Amino acid sequence: MPKHGKKFMDALKKVDRTVAYDPAEALALVKDMATAKFDETVEVAVKLGVDPRHADQQVRGAVVLPHGTGKTRTVLVFAKGEKAKEAEEAGADFVGAEDMVAKIQQEGWLGFDVAIATPDMMGMVGRLGRILGPRGLMPNPKTGTVTFDIAQAVREVKAGKIEYRVDKAGIIHAPIGKVSFDTTKLVENLRTLIEQLIRVKPAAAKGQYIKGVTVCSTMGPGVKVNYTKITA
């Protein structure tokens, strides 16, 4: 069992682990318990009633949070010609084709947070699967990062688009902002994510779909949220 520091244990005393708090109350508590010297990320864990071992119960996609995540994300776009120009005008940090593929393959360069590609580039980008795949950087149509609407894709990432994917335990982990955010903005970001997860509920998922929601800061303890009130 990992040992927690004094600050963590002191913060833990403020939480009733048997109670599921109202969203605003839970997030205000998370903010109050954040004691690190940096602006901690506020994270959410959503337990879903799905069996990820079955392909028809996978939950994966992306959503634009109304208030962003508080983090500036570096975007690489694989595109040529007019689409490359569109990417640059939309604010992409790096744009290229064969040159970028070679830079990643030969130099091991990974100076970006999100990779976007036009569909015609995927034959070339596919060679990077072993490098980008394990790091979650491979462009994917399910998350909107393989598209001809390059400008829109870049703008969404810059505006606060996050990707989500259910893990082997049936849990979605995602950032919803920083502790410096107003509680209201954190609640709205949380609501947007939960509503999106409800929209993409697999038809094969039976019984209770959302089984639990917990929020925490990077260094703080988790706080249970009454998820029935998130979308109320």
Rank of each mutant, 00 (worst) to 15 (best):
Arg60Ser: 08
Arg60His: 08
Gly61Val: 06
Val63Cys: 03
Val63Phe: 05
Leu65Arg: 04
Leu65Gly: 00
His67Thr: 09
His67Asp: 09
Thr69Ile: 12
Gly70Gln: 04
Lys71Met: 11
Lys71Gly: 15
Lys71Pro: 13
Thr72Cys: 15
Thr72Ser: 15
Arg73Gly: 08
Val77Tyr: 10
Val77Asn: 05
Val77Asp: 04
Phe78Tyr: 01
Ala79Thr: 06
Gly81Tyr: 10
Glu82Pro: 11
Ala84Leu: 11
Lys85Pro: 10
Glu86Lys: 14
Glu86Ala: 14
Ala87Ser: 01
Glu89Trp: 05
Ala90Trp: 07
Ala90Ser: 03
Gly91Trp: 12
Phe94Ser: 10
Phe94Pro: 05
Val95Phe: 00
Val101His: 03
Ala102Tyr: 02
Ile104Val: 04
Ile104Leu: 01
Gln105Tyr: 10
Glu107Asn: 14
Gly108Met: 05
Trp109Asp: 15
Leu110Ala: 05
Leu110Phe: 00
Gly111Lys: 11
Gly111Glu: 05
Phe112Met: 01
Asp113Tyr: 06
Ala117Thr: 00
Thr118Leu: 06
Pro119Arg: 09
Asp120Ala: 04
Met122Val: 05
Met122Ser: 02
Met124Phe: 09
Arg127Lys: 06
Arg130Ile: 03
Arg130Asn: 08
Arg130Tyr: 12
Ile131Gln: 01
Gly133Glu: 04
Pro134Ser: 07
Pro134Val: 07
Arg135Thr: 01
Leu137Cys: 02
Leu137Trp: 00
Asn140Phe: 13
Pro141Met: 09
Thr143Gln: 04
Gly144His: 06
Gly144Ser: 02
Thr145Asp: 02
Val146Glu: 06
Val146Gln: 00
Thr147Lys: 01
Thr147His: 10
Phe148Ser: 14
Asp149Met: 12
Ile150Asp: 10
Ala151Asn: 06
Ala151Asp: 14
Gln152Pro: 10
Gln152Asn: 15
Gln152Gly: 12
Ala153Arg: 08
Ala153Glu: 09
Ala153Phe: 10
Val154Thr: 07
Val154Lys: 05
Val154Cys: 00
Glu156Val: 14
Glu156Leu: 15
Val157His: 11
Val157Glu: 11
Lys158His: 07
Lys158Gln: 09
Ala159Met: 09
Gly160Lys: 03
Glu163Lys: 05
Glu163Tyr: 08
Tyr164Thr: 00
Arg165Met: 10
Arg165Val: 03
Val166Lys: 00
Asp167Ala: 06
Lys168Trp: 13
Lys168Asp: 15
Lys168Ser: 14
Ala169Val: 13
Ile172Glu: 01
Ala174Val: 06
Pro175Val: 08
Ile176Cys: 02
Ile176Gln: 02
Ile176Pro: 04
Ile176Leu: 04
Ile176Arg: 07
Ser180Asn: 09
Ser180Tyr: 11
Asp182Tyr: 11
Thr183Ala: 11
Thr184Lys: 15
Thr184Tyr: 14
Lys185Ile: 11
Leu186Phe: 10
Leu186Val: 10
Val187Cys: 11
Asn189Leu: 12
Leu190Ser: 15
Leu190Lys: 09
Arg191Met: 15
Thr192Arg: 15
Thr192Asn: 13
Thr192Ile: 07
Glu195Arg: 14
Gln196Asn: 13
Gln196Trp: 07
Leu197Phe: 08
Leu197Arg: 09
Lys201Arg: 13
Pro202Thr: 13
Ala203Val: 10
Ala204Val: 14
Ala205Asp: 12
Lys206Val: 12
